[in-house]
C-alpha cells in the first residue's frame, strides 16, 4: 500500500479541520473495509487518512424514550446493530439486512455510515433505512444539516455529501402502531456477495390488522441508486393486504424498477424478482405486524 499518515481526531470539528488543512490530499476512513481496498487498488491515493473511528459518540443505537425516534451513530459497526436487542425486536427490517452484510469479520469492522456514503445501488444498509423513512445528519464547515436518506443518493458512488462533510448519524422516525417490516437480500451466496436484488418493505396496519395505513417499499439494485416503489406504496395504502393486493403491488413495483443487465443478473429476471419478493416481504410484514411488541420471531 502507498504510505500515508493516519490521523486520529476525537471530535468532528477536529476531523473537518484536518481535512481542510490537507485539502486534496486527505480522505476519511471509518471501518476501512472499503477505503483500504480502494487504496490497495490505487483508486484512492491519500497522503493523509483521517479516522472517524475514534470520534466520541454513542456505541450503540439509542431509542429516545419521549419521541420514539431511533438514533444510530454512523460510526457503529454492522455487528453492533446485528447484536442489538433493540434492533432485533423493534426494527427486524434492519436486522434482516445488517446480519447478512459481508461476513462476521467485515461486520465487526465496517460501519453503517460507511455503507451509506459509498452510495452503491446495492447498499444493503440503505434499503431498510429508506423504508423506515430515515434521515441522515451531515456535518461540515457550515454546521449540521439533515436530509432524508432517499434524497441522499445521486447516482452510483455519488451522494449529496460535499467535500469534507461527514455523515454523522441516522435518525429513524417513530414507528406507527402495528407496523411490520422485512428485508431480503437475494443473491447466489449468503456471504460476501452483493445482492442481485434487495427488497425492504414496511407495512403499518389499521386496528383490523388487515388494512394498510402506510406502506414503504425500498428497492436495491433496481435502479442506479436505492429507490422507493412509490406507485406500489400508494396502491397498497387503504387496501386490505392479502394475496391479491400483494401480487398486484409486486407487479406495480416491478414496472417502477429501472433494472438493467449486470454481471450478477439480467434485467428481465430482476424485474420478475421484484414482483415475487415484494409479495413475499409483504406476507412477512403482515405476520410481524400482528405480533405483539417483544415477541417477534427470529430474535
Amino acid at each position: 500500500m502507498k504510505p500515508f499518515t493516519y490521523l486520529i481526531p476525537k471530535t468532528l470539528d477536529e476531523a473537518i479541520s484536518l481535512f481542510e488543512s490537507h485539502e486534496g490530499r486527505s480522505a476519511y476512513i471509518a471501518g476501512g473495509t472499503d477505503v483500504l481496498i480502494k487504496i490497495k487498488e490505487r483508486k484512492l491515493l491519500p497522503d493523509y487518512l483521517i479516522s472517524l473511528k475514534h470520534i466520541l459518540g454513542p456505541d450503540r443505537p439509542l431509542l429516545n424514550a419521549d419521541t420514539k425516534e431511533l438514533y444510530i451513530s454512523a460510526f457503529i459497526t454492522h455487528r453492533t446493530l446485528e447484536r442489538s436487542t433493540l434492533i432485533q425486536r423493534t426494527y427486524p427490517i434492519l436486522h434482516d439486512a445488517v446480519k447478512n452484510i459481508g461476513s462476521v469479520q467485515i461486520r465487526n469492522t465496517a460501519t453503517i455510515g460507511g455503507n451509506l456514503v459509498n452510495a452503491v445501488p446495492s447498499a444493503d444498509g440503505a434499503i431498510p433505512l429508506i423504508a423506515l423513512d430515515a434521515s441522515v445528519n451531515i456535518y461540515g464547515t457550515k454546521g449540521m444539516r439533515s436530509i432524508d436518506l432517499i434524497h441522499f443518493f445521486l447516482g452510483p458512488g455519488q451522494s449529496v455529501l460535499e467535500k469534507g462533510e461527514i455523515l454523522t448519524e441516522i435518525v429513524v422516525p417513530p414507528l406507527l402502531p402495528r407496523t411490520g417490516g422485512a428485508y431480503i437480500k437475494f443473491g447466489r451466496r449468503k456471504a460476501m456477495e452483493l445482492p442481485l436484488l434487495g427488497v425492504g418493505m414496511l407495512l403499518s396496519l389499521d386496528e383490523d390488522l388487515a388494512t394498510c395505513v402506510k406502506a414503504r417499499i425500498g428497492l436495491g439494485v433496481a435502479a442506479p441508486t436505492p429507490i422507493r416503489a412509490f406507485s406500489a406504496e400508494r396502491f397498497l395504502k387503504g387496501r386490505e393486504v392479502n394475496e391479491q393486493t400483494l401480487t398486484e403491488a409486486g407487479q406495480i413495483a416491478a414496472d417502477e424498477a429501472r433494472v438493467r443487465d449486470s454481471i450478477r443478473g439480467v434485467a428481465w429476471y430482476r424485474r420478475e424478482l421484484v414482483g415475487v419478493l415484494v409479495k413475499r416481504m409483504g406476507f412477512t410484514c403482515l405476520q410481524r405486524a400482528g405480533l405483539k411488541h417483544g415477541d417477534s420471531e427470529d430474535v
Binding site: Y6, G32, T33, I37, K53, R79, V104, Q105, T109
Partner: peptide, 12 residues
C-alpha cells in the same frame, strides 16, 4: 471479535 487483518490497519 474476528476480523480480517488484510483490511485492518496495524495502528488500530
Amino acid at each position: 471479535a474476528a476480523i480480517n487483518t488484510c483490511l485492518y490497519l496495524a495502528v488500530e
